[in-house]
Design a protein around this nucleic acid. Structure first.
Length: 226
DNA sequence: TGCCAGGCCGGGT
DNA sequence: ACCCGGCATGGC
């Protein structure tokens, strides 16, 4: 991570990409469901599953909790790993129901570190899923690292091979103001870059990071996302 | 046509 | 503390 100034990188990304308006979801609960469904899965497939759930009117904690797991797994089938993910969704809604009476409002009123630990204790919720829920559903400043972030940071030599999720998360959180809107925009831009320029088919030469970044310097102090 | 996507878990070194 | 196989559908 040496030689990476996260604020310069943010400014470079934002200048190149603009606001991302993430997470693509209509409700907070839909974000939570999506966060589980997208585990190692293309978002396109998740959309189908979400659509099925919406049409079936199952996009609330209570409706999901009341549904048989087999029925749930059929609805989310397009997202892949559907049996496992049905179980995981059940675990998450069980947690919301038992701990907070099904109220996301109450859940997200929990102090961030405490809630994060609680989420990680749910079977099927790992660091990225937990942080995505905290940030994108809860508007809580928990920086999300994902495969794209890791790949981009490594490809540019900013992250070493030994840097893992915890190290990278810590790195950004230590150097940025704890602002959910900023973390939101930042991670969303990493994913966008990943999608467009950092996949197998995509061209690395077209990546905005390629030319803009080396010439970047910290210019402004106010880096709030729109 | 294969390879792989916005992970996570469990069992083995 | 790592490393690996399993989990599954759909798109390019």
């Amino acid at each position: 991570m040496r030689s990476l100034d996260p604020i310069s990188l943010y400014e470079g990304l934002f200048a190149a990409l603009g606001p991302q308006e993430w997470w693509p979801a209509r409700t907070k609960f839909e974000v939570i469901v999506g966060a589980v469904l997208v585990q190692n899965t293309a978002w396109k497939n998740v959309e189908r599953a979400i659509t099925n759930l919406r049409k079936a009117k199952k996009l609330t904690p209570r409706a999901l909790a009341a549904m048989p797991q087999d029925e749930l797994s059929e609805l989310i089938r397009p997202a892949g790993y559907y049996r496992m993910k049905a179980r995981r969704l059940k675990n998450v809604v069980g947690f919301i129901t038992e701990q907070y009476g099904g109220s996301l409002k109450r859940m997200f009123a929990t102090p961030l570190p405490e809630l994060r630990e609680a989420l990680l204790a749910i079977h099927g919720v790992g660091p990225e899923t937990a942080d995505s829920i905290l940030l994108y559903a809860g508007d809580l400043p928990s920086f999300v690292i994902d495969a794209y972030t890791l790949r981009i940071l490594r490809r540019h030599g900013w992250a070493g091979e030994t840097d893992g999720y915890a190290e990278l998360k810590q790195f950004f959180e230590d150097r940025l103001p704890a602002d959910a809107a900023l973390f939101n925009e930042y991670h969303a831009m990493f994913v966008r870059i990943g999608h467009l320029y950092c996949r197998r088919e995509a061209k690395c030469e077209a990546c905005p990071l390629r030319d803009t970044l080396p010439s970047l310097r910290p210019l402004r102090r106010n880096i709030r996302a729109p």
